[in-house]
Design a protein around this nucleic acid. Structure first.
Lengths: 201, 201
DNA sequence: CGCTCTTGACAGAACGTTCAATCAAGTGTA
DNA sequence: TACACTTGATTGAACGTTCTGTCAAGAGCG
């Protein structure tokens, strides 16, 4: 294995770029080869059996970017005034990373039409995040820091409150036109959420 | 022709079906012709100059389905306990309509990669909904029914709380696995939202 | 007849993929 | 050192298919 160039990696990077920009159908073997600086598209078939496999390998190797979305069991006992803003910040800032942006675009674009791809995203990110939030809410109810309520609903609600802001970064710039910053939104949203769930006195 | 068939409409319907299922690139003129029951794909070019135009016409004629998302100025003065659940119900039930589902899938699928399409969706739906909610929240603050706060944030938060539930219907069935119904979610979410924003006493 | 609509056939391009040939760099042998 | 041989990597050309879009020739109706 001569360390001159990592062809496989080159191809994966270029394919990631092309797929995320043009979609599976839109990106062509030739355009990927071009982006990777290859002389011939045929070379791709030395490293990958076909386009479909190349696509799945791209997903497989680039998805760790999204796993960064946190799921830290250590936070379970910390108070929500502290934990929720942290999670919200980590979550929203994930989408400032261009690679993560492209990854979401890539997966979402295909997920519309290919359930298997939707499933990958759902398991890698959504299930994790919602699952953690449900556990966290349940624990905080136990501790008496939140009033009893349906945690399935509050988990959705909390992560949902952040979605339009994330959507503004990723797909719909219109949303950002009113100039609301992440920090402002987090402050207001968390405040509403917490006041809405604080124990009755 | 003895049969009074609306060829144009047939083609638009079939194209809508195919585009929403396979995307712009994935749907072919031939498959659209097949779905429309045409003998020859060439017929499509009698009614539409090219594939791109056909696609835009599909968007143009089918988008009213989404305009149904309400924006009723008449609700401005009604109390939030009444208005918010109504809006939430109307909003979530929109995605029970298969045609609307396909429309969202179609637009979202293309919006990932074509900003003009994202813009159409943004103007037709997002801007309207967020705009109305901001006005409504502002008015309710004026009336003293909600405590003063940043309405840009609360508008996002309210509609966002519903998004995961909508996402479960449209793209990520995993979300629905915990069995939370629309009605249950609306009740909890609206309750949290209102308690979180009720005027200080 | 003229006009609108419909047809099958087809051109030209682009697609994913295959293939035989080539190259640079070892490896084994004498 | 010289030479034959192997190996992994790379190439350009070509294959068969499929795509969008075109065309000339009709069919049915007023």
């Amino acid at each position: 294995m001569p360390e001159e160039v990592d062809r496989r990696g080159q191809i994966l990077d270029a394919a990631f770029e092309e797929f995320s920009e043009k979609g599976f159908k839109g990106a062509t073997i030739k355009s990927i080869a071009g982006a990777a600086g290859l002389q011939s598209p045929a070379l791709i078939y030395w490293y990958f059996p076909d386009k479909e496999t190349l696509f799945r390998e791209v997903l497989g190797t680039k998805i760790p970017v999204l796993r960064a979305v946190r799921d830290p069991a250590g936070l379970l006992d910390l108070p929500p005034e502290e934990v929720l803003p942290t999670i919200a910040r980590g979550y929203l800032s994930t989408f400032d990373n261009p690679a993560a942006q492209r990854m979401v675009r890539l997966i979402m674009g295909e997920a519309m039409r290919r359930p298997e791809i939707a499933e990958i995203f759902a398991s890698a990110v959504i299930k994790r995040v919602l699952g953690f939030l449900k556990s966290y809410m349940a624990r905080q109810i136990e501790l008496g820091r939140l009033r009893p309520h349906d945690v399935r609903s509050s988990a959705r609600a909390f992560i949902g409150m952040l979605l339009p802001q994330a959507g503004g970064k990723l797909f719909f710039p219109v949303i950002r036109e009113d100039g609301l910053t992440d920090e402002e939104h987090i402050e207001t949203a968390v405040d509403v959420f917490l006041k809405g769930l604080r124990p009755e006195s």
